[in-house]
Simulated scan of single mutants.
Amino acid sequence: MAEARKINPLLKSVLEFGPVVIFFIAYLRLKEQVFTIGGTEYDGFIVVTAAFIPLLIASTGALWALTGHISRMQVATLVLVVIFGGLSVWLNDARFFKMKPTMIYLLFGGLLAVGLLRGQSYLKFVMEEVMPLRDAGWMILTKRLMWCFFALAVLNEVIWRNMSEEAWVYFKTFGLSAAVFIFFMAQGKLFQAYSVERSDPDQRGD
């Protein structure tokens, strides 16, 4: 596989996170409004979702054109956004888009679980260049991340079904990303114990 081409880090961040930020800002501005399109009324959430889908497609396409590479995670996320966002717009029902994070985390967690059942860490294939660990460390980290993904899927269901739409938008925009960031920050001892630079192979971070 060809290596990804380097682009300006700021541009890369804009392409990766810009659509989500725009979705959040647009929602705050339009959440109270109702739009009549083709004789059907759509609330602000549905209109913003409809705009978010092509925006994400465009930004992902631009990222691929500039770098020559997009991750499997980005592809899976884009496909699920198109499917569940499209269903929300087509059926004028916000619930489908709110279920999208659940499906994403169930998919990622399920893929990691399949790898573990086969005695492999699929996470290693994705992140080995970023975090060089020994095989035992990858297996532990993969198992922990699998449970983290499943927990986030459950948490998303609890929040969108029991809290306000605005609370869910805040959770989706900030809470999910923060949860994954905190998860990796909490793995410091594991990274130290299983780093390939360490000479003691018997130390464990579990």
Results as ranks from 00 to 15, higher is better:
residue 145 L to A: 08
residue 129 E to K: 13
residue 171 F to G: 00
residue 129 E to W: 07
residue 151 A to M: 10
residue 152 L to R: 02
residue 170 Y to G: 03
residue 142 T to C: 05
residue 166 E to T: 15
residue 155 L to I: 12
residue 167 A to P: 06
residue 128 E to A: 15
residue 157 E to R: 08
residue 130 V to A: 13
residue 133 L to A: 07
residue 138 W to G: 07
residue 165 E to K: 14
residue 130 V to G: 06
residue 125 F to D: 04
residue 170 Y to K: 00
residue 145 L to R: 00
residue 157 E to L: 12
residue 171 F to W: 12
residue 171 F to C: 01
residue 167 A to W: 03
residue 155 L to N: 05
residue 159 I to V: 12
residue 161 R to M: 08
residue 136 A to S: 11
residue 166 E to H: 12
residue 150 F to C: 13
residue 132 P to N: 12
residue 172 K to F: 01
residue 145 L to T: 03
residue 143 K to R: 13
residue 122 Y to Q: 02
residue 129 E to G: 11
residue 152 L to Q: 05
residue 166 E to K: 14
residue 137 G to V: 07
residue 141 L to I: 04
residue 160 W to Y: 13
residue 128 E to Y: 15
residue 171 F to A: 05
residue 169 V to E: 05
residue 154 V to I: 15
residue 131 M to K: 14
residue 151 A to D: 12
residue 141 L to V: 01
residue 125 F to T: 12
residue 125 F to N: 08
residue 168 W to E: 08
residue 170 Y to C: 02
residue 143 K to F: 01
residue 151 A to V: 10
residue 141 L to N: 01
residue 125 F to W: 08
residue 125 F to S: 06
residue 150 F to I: 13
residue 130 V to R: 15
residue 124 K to P: 00
residue 149 F to E: 02
residue 157 E to D: 13
residue 141 L to E: 03
residue 125 F to Y: 08
residue 133 L to F: 07
residue 148 C to S: 07
residue 170 Y to E: 11
residue 160 W to S: 00
residue 151 A to H: 10
residue 163 M to C: 07
residue 120 Q to N: 04
residue 143 K to T: 10
residue 143 K to S: 09
residue 147 W to R: 13
residue 164 S to M: 05
residue 124 K to E: 14
residue 146 M to S: 06
residue 152 L to P: 03
residue 155 L to Q: 04
residue 119 G to D: 04
residue 161 R to C: 09
residue 122 Y to K: 09
residue 167 A to Y: 00
residue 151 A to Y: 10
residue 130 V to C: 07
residue 146 M to P: 01
residue 159 I to F: 03
residue 140 I to R: 15
residue 149 F to V: 00
residue 165 E to V: 14
